[in-house]
Nucleic acid binder design. Structure first.
Length: 491
RNA sequence: GCCUCCAUCGUCUAACGGUUAGGACGUGGCCCUUUCAAGGCCAAAACAGGGGUUCGAUUCCCCUUGGAGGCACCA
């Protein structure tokens, strides 16, 4: 274990885990696993209004599905199916750490590095609106910067509750060193005395984040680009607290096909939605890793541990990446083809059950699912490709027209039925010999025979290798379906 | 409006001053083949524009344009 590398994923539980969040979580996880470091999950639930337990569930469920396991103890599943946290055993929840934040706020106020602000929300909103109307920078006026104790008490006596702001320098610049972007400089004049403790007594995001990253000895903060502009504020906090900041790395954003930030209107953005659409978690991880990261070989597919062994912050891209569902599907197909029959069956089972095939024996279903392996792009494709093995055939009109309703087909099917009835063995190899023998005996091109029997037996022109299909179907079904097909041809 | 970031095929990307600008998805063609896939081979497809620096710029600098993110007592 390398104690020098400690990273974290810190989502706020205000909704499901989306693609962008998952990518951030993945990069942190890859880095930790590749460096034998520690990966911490911290739930930033300081938004009292929008945080929900359901969101926590969704985030943990998504992480588990993706295989992004976190260290310092997984959450325990409670008797009611909800995740419990006890002491050190869970993800961290910021609302359970309020005492720590208050302690540091008080210390900063006592040192004069932060101050109480009694401005009301209405006053601040009005000032901001005015500044915007005048096209000025909407910056805090600094009204409460040098309030005397007496003035503060007077405001308190009016019933006003204070927030706490950090005192920021008025000139100079704050430089953010970033492992992906180099040095990014912000003029202090555009920064402002920002709130570190809300009127409610709770910490703000920027404050809790700094306190926790330090308390948890985070070495690298790998997060989305949208946090870049928060970083100078956080850096001022590290300075005020006398702490060394971690190394920062800001990941570029993920965009939808239209070039704007990926969001709901681009279709599925929830990780769990991809699970129900039939994607494999490994494929999802592999694809997400390629969104904003690459290795010098431009390698696309990674086996097992290869992904985190090869991952590096240096390979991260500065420019935003557009999410491409088509490539994701291709990759999912690649992963499906790499699975063993057993694995694929296990993966597909929930989708088969959902489609009403729960009653079919595993021994019948497994080889059938495997037979069509190279056709699937999604696990949701499975039921539709194997249905005719276990349900009545639905004859596709085009298939019947194009293949069955041809001169001589009825005779061929009749002859074939005789051959198949007489054949003692009914395995693919024997069937191929018999049917090919039938072709040469009658002087027919194989195509003239193979296509009709395929349609007769499956109702469609596309499908698995013919002889494997016949074997799995079994003599009884094959003969019955040939009879049905011949009925269809009767005028 | 202000601040910040970004810019190579349609998309994800390689290149770290000198390359026929490489790979992958997708697209088109061919091959394989009992269909459909899968697989193999081939092809079309990019350095946003303008200035510098340099013997030489995709690469370094500046400007323009375009795109994105942020500007809360949300995170």
């Amino acid at each position: 274990m390398n104690d020098k590398i400690r990273v974290r994923f810190a989502p706020s539980p205000t909704g499901y885990l989306h693609i962008g969040g998952a990518r951030t979580a993945l990069f942190n996880w890859l880095y930790a696993r590749g460096q034998q470091g520690t990966f911490i999950l911290r739930i930033e639930d300081t938004d009292e209004l929008r945080s929900t337990p359901d969101s926590v569930e969704a985030i943990l469920g998504s992480m588990r599905w993706l295989g992004l396991d976190w260290d310092e103890g997984p959450a325990e599943l409670g008797p009611d199916g909800r995740y419990l946290t006890k002491g050190d055993s869970g993800p961290y929840f910021q609302m359970e750490r309020q005492e720590l934040y208050r302690k540091h706020v008080d210390a900063l106020v006592a040192e004069g590095k932060a101050y109480r602000c009694y401005c009301t929300k209405e006053e601040l909103d009005a000032a901001r609106a005015e500044a915007q109307a005048a096209k000025r920078l909407p910056r805090y006026s600094g009204r409460c910067r040098s309030l005397s104790d007496a003035q503060g008490q007077a405001f308190a006596a009016e019933g006003r509750r204070p927030s706490v702001r950090l005192r920021m320098p008025d000139d100079g610049a704050t430089v953010v060193p970033d492992r992906i972007r180099g040095e990014v400089s912000f003029e202090n004049a555009v920064l402002q005395d920002f709130v570190i403790q809300k009127m409610t007594g709770g910490p703000t995001y920027n404050f809790a984040c700094v306190i926790d990253d330090h308390a948890m000895r985070i070495s690298h903060v790998i997060r989305g680009d949208e946090h870049l502009s928060n970083t100078p504020l956080q850096l001022r906090l590290y300075e005020a607290l006398g702490w060394a900041p971690p190394i920062f790395a800001h990941l570029s954003m993920i965009l939808g096909p239209d070039g704007t930030k990926l969001s709901k209107r681009h279709g599925a953005t929830s990780v769990l939605e991809y699970r129900s659409q039939g994607f494999l978690p490994d494929a999802m991880r592999n694809y997400l890793a390629l969104l904003g990261w690459s290795n010098p070989e431009s390698q696309q597919l990674f086996d097992g541990d290869e992904l985190f062994q090869k991952f590096s912050v240096e390979g991260c891209q500065k420019n935003p990446a557009t999410f491409d569902p088509v490539k994701l599907q291709w990759m999912n197909g690649e992963y499906i083809r790499k699975r063993t029959g057993e694995q694929l069956f296990a993966d597909a089972l929930p989708f088969l059950e959902q489609a009403g095939f729960g009653d079919v024996a595993r021994a019948d279903m497994l080889p059938t699912v495997a037979l069509e392996r190279e056709k699937y792009k999604l696990l949701t494709d499975v039921p539709g490709r194997v249905d005719y093995f276990f349900r009545d055939v639905v004859y596709q009109p085009e298939a019947v027209e194009k293949v069955l309703r041809k001169e001589g087909v009825d005779g061929i099917l009749g002859g074939l039925a005789g051959i198949l009835e007489a054949s003692a063995a009914f395995d693919a190899k024997t069937l191929e010999e018999r049917i090919r023998g039938f072709c040469s005996e009658k002087g027919l091109k194989p195509n003239k025979v193979f296509h009709p029997i395929r349609v007769a037996v499956s109702g469609r022109t596309d499908g698995a290798t013919l002889f494997g299909m016949l074997e799995l179907l079994g003599r009884e079904k094959v003969l019955a379906r040939i009879r049905t097909a011949r009925q269809l041809l009767k005028p």
